[in-house]
Structures are given as C-alpha cells and as structure tokens.
Nucleic acid binder design. Structure first.
Lengths: 129, 129
DNA sequence: GTTGAGCCTCAACCTGGGTTCAGGTCAAGG
DNA sequence: CCTTGACCTGAACCCAGGTTGAGGCTCAAC
C-alpha cells in the first residue's frame, strides 16, 4: 500500500505547498526523510495528508516548532486528543492576550480617527507610558 | 528654554527606552540628530515626550515606519488630527483582520481542547485546506 | 596616573518561515 | 548530440526591531 512514488514537485502541487517549504519542513523535522531514488525524494501518498495537517495548524497560528512537537508526540504513539489538550492549555492564554491587545489597538485607532488635536504632544492619545 | 543638557543615558532612563533603541530610532529618522558636545549626544528635555509618543504608538501596534511617517508629517506642519485620521483609515482593516484571525484561532484551540480523536489524521479539526 | 563609567562607531547577530541563487546531476525527447 | 525540466545541495538573503560585541574616547574621581 505504502508505495513511494511521488516526486517532491507532485507532492507540492497536490498539497498546495512550495517545494522549498517541503524541504524546509524536512530539515525542521516536521516531515520524515523520504526514500530516495537516484538522489531524488520519493514520497508515499500519506505525506499529502501530513502537509494538510501542517497547513491547517499553521493557519490556526501554531509555530512550526509547536507543530513539530505535536507531530512527533503523536508519531511516538501519544493519543492526539491528549496532545491537543496540552497544546490548547498552553496556547489559549497567549491567543487571548493577542486578541485583547488587538482590540485595545482598534479602540486606540478609532479614537485616533476622531482626534481633533493639532499636535501629537497635545493629544491625550499619547499621554503617559 | 530648549537647552540641550541630557545625555543619552539620562534620556533612556527617563523615557524607559534603552540607549541602543534611541540610537536605532535616530538612524531610522524617528528622532532628530541631537547636538553633540565632544562627540556625545546632548538632548533637550522635549525628546522624552517624543520617545513617549513613539512608545505609545508602538504599543498600539504601529510599525516604526508608520510612526516615522506620522512624526515627519506632523513635524513638517501637518495637523496631527488629519494624519491620525489617515493612519486610522489605513490601519483599522488590518487590525480588524488580526482580531478575526486570532478569534478563529481561539475557537480552533477550544475545539482542540475538547477533541477525543486518537490520531490527527482522523480529527475533523485538520480536515481540508 | 590610572581606573571606571559612560559614551562613540560600525558590524555582526538574533528569531521565523521560508525564498532565491549558484553550481551540479539526471532522464527524456527531438 | 543537445536541450529542457525537474531535481539535488548549501549558503546567502529577506523582513522587523533592535541587541551585542569589538575597539576606542573622554571625563571625573581617587
């Protein structure tokens, strides 16, 4: 079943990931070292699913280091739900802080759009540290 | 009134900004080239307010390039409110996109925390692109 | 007179997530 | 035979926002 038949270019096209990114993920340990034929990487079909997982996790805002840790735990036999729960526990406060900062920034910008000050020094938006 | 008496170290302490950051801002044009005495920078007191403006703007999420553009327009005589309005118009959609992305990420992480899947491949959280 | 703090410049380094480039290999097609 | 295209490696480059380090001045105190 697990025949290694895909070239890196084919994998990239099917997964919607650039060839250079695939090689980069391999160096970072997110993808296994594939079998090689005459020096060229030959992938089995499953790697496309793995790239899909990586892409989804990236879009969700995880760093490659976090994704790599998650994948290697699960590769090592750890239940996915357990690792996902740990990840959520660690990462949620961080994401919530991002949301709060961005909302504060939005409020500030809205106020900036309504400002009537002639100089920045006089503007209450810039008061204190 | 505008006596240039402060050393870079004093300015840094009073403004809560590192000395290396002050020199960096100067290179980037956010701070004027100060008067020099025996090769050392001598600042007038007003620079502390300017550093406060820069710090506030940074905390609000503006890049140094944006802050520099704002400051130079206003230094050049443009009314602050006008430049702030332009800035808000340009920057708000960006910040709102950040908020939406972060909220989507939070939702995903909350779902991840409740996941029961044994493998990532089986998990609906990772479905599709 | 020498020690030490604080200043100076310029250049290199850091993180993240890759991209791009130089120089080379290999197989197929005309 | 020669070209074209896909692949290979390793190193350099990109962005931001600084920090760190080397090597050197000067000023004041002791």
């Amino acid at each position: 079943m697990a025949e290694a038949t895909l070239s890196i270019g084919e994998v990239g096209r099917k997964a919607g990931v650039s060839v250079s990114a695939i090689r980069f993920y391999e160096r970072r340990g997110l993808l296994p070292q594939p079998e090689r034929v005459a020096g060229r990487r030959r992938y089995e079909h499953g790697v496309i699913g793995r790239l899909g997982i990586i892409s989804t996790a990236k879009r969700a805002g995880l760093s490659l280091a976090e994704i790599g840790a998650l994948l290697s735990e699960v590769d090592g036999g750890a239940p996915a739900h357990e690792q996902l729960r740990r990840l959520a526990t660690r990462k949620l406060p961080e994401v919530e802080a991002t949301i709060e900062r961005a909302q504060a920034t939005r409020g500030w910008l809205v106020a900036a759009g309504e400002c009537r000050c002639e100089t920045l020094a006089a503007c209450a938006l810039f008061d204190q540290g």
